[in-house]
Amino acid sequence: MVSASFIFYVLAIIIVTMTMIILSHALNPRGHKRSNAYPYESGIVPVGDTNIRWNVNYFLIAISFVIFDIEAVFLYLWSLVVVETSWPGLLTASLFILALFIALIYEIKQGAFNWGIRKEGES
């Protein structure tokens, strides 16, 4: 059950953060005319917009994360009950880990985490 002190703590955190934002807003010097309405790009006029083509590796990382995080969820559960499930459980978990480990090897060999310069033809 959520304790009262936790609720109070949450409220306190929110209040503190809000206060920090509001306080700085209240204290900040106003009235200055600023001409700098551009994003920072080392002091030169920005080029292009932010709609950049992302390296495909970012997506690969995202997908790998999704897969392996779910794997992790199953292992969390297993680690709670290692003693109860005993050897059969360990066996199953080992198989599970083995399967994902092989998948991981496959993924690495596929170059999913190669960020360097690619050879021609590699996607």
């Binding site: 994003p39 790009e41 932010t50 970012y58 990382i61 994360f65 992790a72």
Partner: peptide, 27 residues
């Protein structure tokens, strides 16, 4: 939300890094 290239690049990097390390942090 910054809508700036450096910020975006940094955010992508951070996110990718945090996600990658989170997997085995939990484990």
């Amino acid at each position: 939300s910054s809508n700036s290239k450096y910020a975006l690049l940094g955010a992508m990097r951070t996110a990718a890094q945090m996600l990658s390390y989170e997997v085995f942090m939990g484990l």
